[in-house]
Amino acid sequence: MWQAALLLPDPTATERLARALAPGLRPGDTVLLEGPLGAGKSALARAVIRARLSDPLAEVPSPTFTLVQTYGRDDGIWHADLYRLSGPAEALELGLDEAMGRALCLIEWPDRLGPLAPPEALRIALEPAGEGRKARLWGPAAWGDRLAPLLATAVGQDD
């Protein structure tokens, strides 16, 4: 188990975190984004997607209404918002189980996944802290090997 905590004082810090994470992510990875409404889950996902596409202006609309937005060649990135789902069965209908393991999946409101949440996923929890955000990242130890060096050079750690 690896974990890291970060302070994100402003939106620029969120974007720096996303740019640091992006090269450490691969197709087949699942990133579960937790946190209340307005915590910045979509903003972080948007910045990760733009970094992965090497396109700082790529249009990344909220997936709240459409449930899933896909990006890149062969739908290489899935950005999902499961808030409107009532449970894992609906995530299956969406084809998320099939996408996880193939595409890079960025999933908001992952509690709807229930037992479908992959144990090897990277988890990121965001919560408001004053004018900024607190971010906690955790997952199996392999994530530390991949991400710790990237985070160390790009953002100051909270602890």
């Binding site: 997607i49 733009r50 596409l53 396109d55 202006l57 790529a58 249009e59 990344v60 609309p61 997936p63 209404f65 459409t66 937005q69 896909t70 990006y71 890149g72 060649r73």
Partner: peptide, 9 residues
């Protein structure tokens, strides 16, 4: 710009 704009919106 970019290939990101592919969603239902």
């Amino acid at each position: 710009l970019g290939s990101g704009r592919k969603g239902a919106k």
